[in-house]
């Protein structure tokens, strides 16, 4: 069996920088951007049968806009936010000084190389190495932003993540209306109102097949749409 069902001994590498050790400028920039994103997107945050918690979690959400990760990040209460790292595409976020600074210093994002995914250098291993035993992640299992606003099929990364660390809580998140605020291909936002819903945590069932788990996870996000 390729992946053992019990938690793999994960080498606990401390995060590159402790979350609290970020510079004052980066913290201020983070807070400002979070406030700005909340204001601009008029987001109301709902926790449905779920509570914010500092335990290790993977938030998985539908992906419709560049603002998604920032908005989920800013919807979390401050102590949780400090521990949570968005996963973002390296090809986009490491281009240019500003983007790289935002991704690396302000949001402490985990940049994944979408163009260079190999078996031995799988992004899932990298994610698990980076979060150690304390930090949480924001992931978008669809892989890229949806054009129509509909929920696409989930890529298998979430399954392997759950399989290697069955102890981590998987929290479904649904983002509503953000694709109208900043659609794909636009850079000027229209300040409509959006809604972020956090659902109840889920885990990989014992012996659950990949396809049925991914379908269940996708349904959990879809269910939050109501």
């Amino acid at each position: 069996m390729l992946y053992p069902a019990e938690p793999m001994p994960v080498e606990v590498a401390p995060p590159r920088r402790a979350a609290t050790g970020r510079g004052a400028v980066c913290r201020a920039a983070g807070l400002t951007l979070a406030a700005l994103a909340r204001l601009l997107s008029g987001a109301s945050v709902r926790w449905i049968a779920s509570q914010p918690d500092t335990c290790q979690r993977v938030y998985f959400a539908n992906h419709t806009s560049h603002l998604d990760a920032l908005l989920i990040w800013s919807s979390l209460p401050q102590p949780v936010r400090e521990l949570t790292r968005p996963v973002a595409a390296k090809d986009y976020w490491s281009r240019g000084v500003l983007r790289r600074w935002l991704a690396e210093e302000v949001f402490d994002a985990l940049l994944i190389d979408r163009t260079d995914i190999k078996v031995h250098q799988s992004p899932v291993d990298l994610m698990l190495r980076e979060i150690g035993s304390t930090r949480s992640l924001i992931v978008f299992p669809e892989g890229s932003r949806s054009v129509t606003g509909d929920l696409g099929e989930f890529k298998s990364g979430l399954y392997y993540l759950a399989k290697k660390r069955p102890d981590i809580e998987l929290v479904p998140v649904h983002i509503d209306n953000l694709n109208r605020i900043l659609p794909r291909g636009e850079f000027l936002p229209v300040p409509l109102l959006s809604c972020i819903s956090f659902g109840p945590p889920m885990w990989l069932e014992h012996g659950e097949a990949k396809a049925s788990f991914l379908a269940r996870a996708r349904k959990a996000v879809q269910a939050l749409k109501e």
């Binding site: 008029g42 209306n177 109208r180 659609p183 636009e186 000027l188 936002p189 229209v190 300040p191 409509l192 109102l193």
Partner: peptide, 22 residues
Amino acid sequence: LREFITLTPTRKGDHRALFWVF
């Protein structure tokens, strides 16, 4: 206006116009 437009279905082609309206 935010509430009004949020509840009104618009298409992607309206995006730029809406930006200037707001």
